[in-house]
Design a protein around this nucleic acid. Sequence first.
RNA 1: GGGCCGGUAGCUCAGCUGGUAGAGCAGGGGACUUUUAAUCCCAAGGUCGCAGGUUCGAGCCCUGCCCGGCCCA
Length: 588
Amino acid sequence: MARARAPADARRRDAARARDDAAPAGLDDAAVPRLRPGGRGASGGGDHRPALVPRRHRRRARRETAGGRRRPPRAGHRGLRARRRAGRVAHKQRGQPLLLRAPRLPHRARGGDAAGRPARLGYGQAAVSTRPPKRYPDRDEIAAVRAEAEPLEDGAEAAESRRLAGRVMARRDMGKLVFLDLVDRSGRIQLLCPAARTGEVDVHLGDVVGVTGKPAKSRRGEPSLVVDELELLSRIRSPLPDTFHGLTDVEQRYRRRYLDLMMNEETRADFILRSRMVKAIRDYLDGDGFVEVETPALQADYGGAFARPFATHSNELDQDIYLRIAGGELYLKRLIVGGLEKVYEIGRVFRNEGVSYKHNPEFTMLEWYEAYADYNDTMERFETLVETVALEVLGTTKVTYRGQDIDLKRPWRRLKLVDALEEHGVWSEDEADLRAILESRGINTTEDRTWSQLVDHALTNYVEPKLVEPTFLHDYPVRLSPFARTTDGDEQIVERFEGFVGGTELCNAFSELNDAVEQEARFRMQAEEGAGGNVEAEPGDEDYVEALSYGMAPTGGLGFGIDRLAMVLAGKESIRDVILFPAQRPKS
RNA sequence: GGGCCGGUAGCUCAGCUGGUAGAGCAGGGGACUUUUAAUCCCAAGGUCGCAGGUUCGAGCCCUGCCCGGCCCA
């Protein structure tokens, strides 16, 4: 199949048509904002394309395929084997560390030719004439300067100078006039560089530069900065990913998050949102008199959840120790015994288990304990916290999560666990009964050794997915909850609740058991659960019982998954989209 | 752990029934003072994830493995 060279006149026609196509569309596009509104993109989850208009792209793509424009055969065809060999050499060089590769310029490369033009250079190897500055003080935010330029007349220029710094993300070179798009954390603005003022604009896509100039509007009405002085602050040495499509390969987005953040504004917005969320949580708790504390992440024993731990070894103690698999529950309650009254901890928790859209081996938990409060107070505090935080970071309580529109506004629905199970016809106090019910619905219960596990299984299968609107599921069977106080009316039920949004569990809380004697009895009950085959059973803790024996105020306590709330607020379906560096296998 | 899908140039993607790997963007050289995915000309760029196998011939078919995604457990 020989490739024919397209007739020259046909190619010229193509080129002319391309120009005609581009011109009117360009006018339309001038009105398209470069920035998405802060927060979530209108396109919804999963789409990481920049907010640009693909119309022209499509048109051009169509022309390309229909026109059948092909690369003409090379004049000096080197032959396949020679090219393969050349490729292999190039690959080897690419494989070397940048530091070794970059300085190896051919001698000519530094000099350039007699006319002063730089010689042929490899990627990012263009000579940098001076050592770049170590600081760039007194810069303004791009968003602020953009706002300043916005009200100007087309073609007008403001009187006062501004300083901006950021990364160059687009270049449109007219020869004596160069347009650059400069991006910082606050936004994007067009730079207008007249050669008369700035000299030759030796700037590549991806370079970090600092500029001084005056806010202005281009003739076409684009808010800009007319540059008087441009300084290169950092030269890019590796090529930027596709500036239109960004970096879309999910694996690459996680492995090289810096590129994801650089190219995808939505990613930047998501992680700034997470940071503001955590700050809003702290502000709320601090403002209500809580004390932030830290408790051990290295523990001689692990508990508080059913999970495999990461094990390590203390040389000093000559003893195996574990990274915690849950928040510092029993430590924090010791602090209540000690009189700190209101404490919280935001900390990393580790589970030696698999990765999924809602699991990462390390994640972040918040636990708080509040003396003189019960689980009703805690419910109120949690719904207030979530509402407050949502308003603070999103400006609204309405979110879209997993394709569902949800309002986080308080008060949340309260639903008794038993009622919820009965509603779905999966409730019985008798183990054999419950097992039969579940089996009759096709659920495999062979892994469930105890009644508690059957209840849990029924919950996850039938109740939780239905809890889309924010809901507190409350009043759990005592056997599921070794640290919660029983209700006044029924000794078999404890004052415990879990909060759900969009079918996802956000938190777990109780009126804390504060009686040493009863706590001891509960530990014995758990030992029976364990003997019955429930690996989730809580191991006893004599020291904790001793702490309680000094008397603990009645206390409401709660633990919740920070990452999960970040997912809800950012509208992300995968926990990996709210963790900057999610767990990845090393790519050998 | 099982099933399905994917891995081709730095990035985004084509690649037909097995027959010499090809586009756009980025990068190099050149033209251009109002562009905005600027445009135009020229040249360059490949370990087709890895290892085997089948075949005259494999990016494409087969086997195993690695990495990722989705679904299930």
